[in-house]
Simulated assay, not measured.
Amino acid sequence: MTEGNFVDYVKMHVSSGKGGKGSAHLNREKYNAKGGPDGGDGGRGGHVIIRGNENLWTLLHLKFQRHIRAGHGGDGSSNRSTGSDGEDYIIEVPLGTVVRDTETNDILFEITEQGEEKIVAEGGKGGLGNWHFKSSTNQTPRYAQPGIPLEEKDITLELKVLADVGLVGFPNAGKSTLLSVMTAAKPKIADYEFTTLKPNLGIVKYRDYQTFVMADIPGIIEGAAEGKGLGYYFLRHIERNSVLLFLIPADAPDINKQYEILLDELRRYNPEMLDKDRMIAISKCDMLDDELKAELKQELDQTLPIPYLFISSVAQQGITTLKDKLWDMLN
């Protein structure tokens, strides 16, 4: 999936169908001049429905659909014939989509399961025909109900990627390189900050044909929770991850301090992020000789509060061990 094709935020205007009018028809036949009221009910207006589809990974297919309209209900007619129901409009979205009311920014609901359906704009109910209103004192009612009007609203669809492992790190820490080595994903890789502008997903193949999903988001910088850089915009993509893998390069000035800054940004964005299982991968370890690695290990054993692992994506060092550790944490 190329960067331009990853769409995770869409605004649209939805309107359901209005209910059909009830009929005020009076039966007039050749041999029954005063057959009484026989007006049918109006049909229901169509709903706008949002449905989960596990085969979708992005909101790209909705990028240019700004106005969604369901069908109107048909009017009732003679002989107590009910009008046809308006056609529902179904919007297919990837799992992990959050639907918000654009005006209030309130979350209406979330779609997390395959085939899950939620009505976002309810179709108007059809009006009752005049035969419902006949009585002993009013045997020929010449009125019927109008249909209930349609419902309109502006909604925002936000995708929170459903991945098992989320990669967290500063720009240029090697997250995209690690993703490309562990999965078949082909993210853009270059030697400058913010190469990754959109989240990338990859499926990690484990032993016995088992798999798990890994997500790489744009690098976080200090102040991301206040909106600096690209980090804040994409932090929501790691809200649903089961495990957070912090990637810190071996040549970082202070590994422990970098971890604390990253953790603090997550805490300020959403304190619940700290409840997830966490692990640190020290990347670019092919630059260290055995002596430097032993020194660093001695220092990290005393300072780092969570498990860590030395890896090198380029030299393929520690990748199998990393997969094993992540699989154990997920299960």
Score class of each variant (00 low, 15 high):
133 F>H: 11
192 Y>T: 10
50 I>A: 02
23 S>L: 08
1 M>I: 15
294 A>L: 13
113 E>V: 06
116 E>G: 03
314 V>L: 13
112 T>A: 02
97 T>P: 04
32 N>V: 14
66 R>M: 11
202 G>E: 08
270 N>A: 04
8 D>V: 03
258 Q>D: 15
305 P>M: 04
240 R>Y: 01
250 A>V: 12
33 A>N: 13
231 G>A: 05
261 I>C: 01
153 K>L: 14
13 H>C: 11
234 F>M: 08
117 E>C: 10
263 L>I: 07
201 L>A: 03
53 N>A: 10
265 E>C: 02
167 L>F: 07
11 K>F: 06
102 T>Y: 06
307 P>R: 06
150 L>Q: 14
263 L>C: 10
20 G>V: 12
319 I>H: 03
253 P>R: 06
331 N>T: 15
331 N>K: 15
83 G>L: 11
141 P>R: 08
15 S>Q: 15
121 A>P: 05
157 L>M: 14
175 K>A: 03
156 T>D: 05
244 L>D: 00
21 K>I: 11
204 V>Q: 02
75 D>N: 14
93 V>Q: 03
111 I>Q: 01
300 L>T: 09
115 G>P: 01
106 D>W: 07
22 G>A: 11
202 G>D: 08
52 G>T: 09
331 N>A: 08
307 P>K: 11
125 K>W: 05
186 K>S: 11
213 V>K: 15
288 L>C: 02
299 E>D: 09
307 P>T: 07
326 L>Q: 01
89 Y>L: 12
175 K>L: 10
302 Q>F: 04
143 Y>H: 12
26 L>E: 05
126 G>W: 10
288 L>P: 01
227 G>V: 13
130 N>D: 07
6 F>L: 11
90 I>S: 00
176 S>R: 08
126 G>R: 09
300 L>D: 04
118 K>D: 03
277 D>P: 00
141 P>K: 07
316 Q>H: 11
239 E>W: 00
22 G>P: 10
250 A>E: 06
323 K>R: 14
38 D>I: 07
101 D>P: 00
215 A>S: 14
175 K>P: 06
21 K>F: 13
326 L>F: 02
189 I>H: 00
272 E>H: 11
25 H>I: 03
215 A>P: 00
55 N>R: 14
40 G>L: 09
75 D>T: 07
278 R>D: 00
38 D>E: 09
209 Y>W: 09
319 I>C: 07
280 I>C: 05
226 E>V: 05
176 S>P: 11
164 D>I: 10
80 R>Y: 06
54 E>V: 08
19 G>F: 04
204 V>C: 07
170 F>C: 01
319 I>N: 02
144 A>R: 02
302 Q>N: 07
240 R>I: 07
242 S>A: 12
23 S>H: 06
6 F>D: 01
73 G>H: 05
201 L>R: 09
